[in-house]
Design a protein around this nucleic acid. Sequence first.
DNA 1: CTGTGTGAAGGCTTTCACAGCC
DNA 2: GGCTGTGAAAGCCTTCACACAG
Lengths: 206, 206
Amino acid sequence: MSKLVIPRKTVYRLSLYYRALQRLRTGKMATVSSAALAKAAGVKATQLRKDLTYFGQFGTRGLGYSVEALGKQLTDVLGTTRLQPVILVGAGNLGAALLRYPGFAKEGFEVLAAFDLKATKTRARELGVKVLPMTKLGEFIGEHHIKMAILTVPGVVAQEVANQLVEAGVLAVLNFAPIILQVPDNVVVNNVDLAIELENLSYFIQ
Amino acid sequence: MSKLVIPRKTVYRLSLYYRALQRLRTGKMATVSSAALAKAAGVKATQLRKDLTYFGQFGTRGLGYSVEALGKQLTDVLGTTRLQPVILVGAGNLGAALLRYPGFAKEGFEVLAAFDLKATKTRARELGVKVLPMTKLGEFIGEHHIKMAILTVPGVVAQEVANQLVEAGVLAVLNFAPIILQVPDNVVVNNVDLAIELENLSYFIQ
DNA sequence: CTGTGTGAAGGCTTTCACAGCC
DNA sequence: GGCTGTGAAAGCCTTCACACAG
């Protein structure tokens, strides 16, 4: 039962499976084979089956998995982790875009507020979310028990802002700044570096 | 010499090292130890040293690496892969933001044009880049020998657009749509799924 | 004594092969 | 016959331990 034994990469793929399943659900299919679901999720069938056995067995041999039941199992494992309130720090180009990006809300994350040096009402109206000055950061995190933050500030101030976030109680950071944040062990950071993704891609086309 | 033997993950980290080095270069340091550079890049020192030995040995025992020389080596390996022309398809919220994002240009990628169903001159002026209708996609790719594309269209049309890209000759796609693209073996896809990154983060804070 | 280079060991994931069930 | 569940094998990376150079 303990989540702790589920490998990191497996957890990541569980999200992929859940997504793929949702698409199938709208397609009215009652059942999926590991082969079909695996293809939709971009992995090998055996990998999917092994991943699922980390937390039980709910397939029917000869038939596949019940879309309904598997979906429920996945929400049980990932489910409690969704619907988290999140804040965004740094409402520049990228930050502003992410605020307008429907993908977060669609997957159950609500961005409660954005923080920026320039916090004006006009900006708030533009972005459709509360925009507060950086001075209110700690207070807001404490009051709303925020655990997750999206960090879209320039690289040069990222570490400093991260320190503030951690001090205020944030435990997870989705970091878009192109630097490695130094944080305590109990804080998790996922880095998204778009330039590096492009660079990496280009390497593999010779 | 052959790039082919450099592991995927190593290539990815080379970009991290290069970034970290650039920061040190502005700091006027002439030399770095593997320990210092590794910390800046968020990896273990032994890992960095092993990564570097895949394409030579240019450290000085007892001293460290020459910032200058190592930087040059890294550009030699990654360098030819930079300065690639790129197009962006889907100038919605996320796409528009990426066009304004200075990170790509800073790392040597020029976005030559954006493609969207709604291609107006006003839009082009707003975004600071040529915006063309989807009907011109294939032609443009062919004429400009484009090999890389950033895909920021809605999930439901992503596969269809990807097919067009591949057919026109694109070999690498940075995909932001939350689906797994089915492409031929000679085409590389890197997926960036922001909602999954958040979901994954939240799992690890219990 | 500091810090690199590297074979060997270790650990983690993925894949295989096939037994078992519908 | 079709498809899942899973121990065993293989593969891939990371880390260790230490020889070696400045």
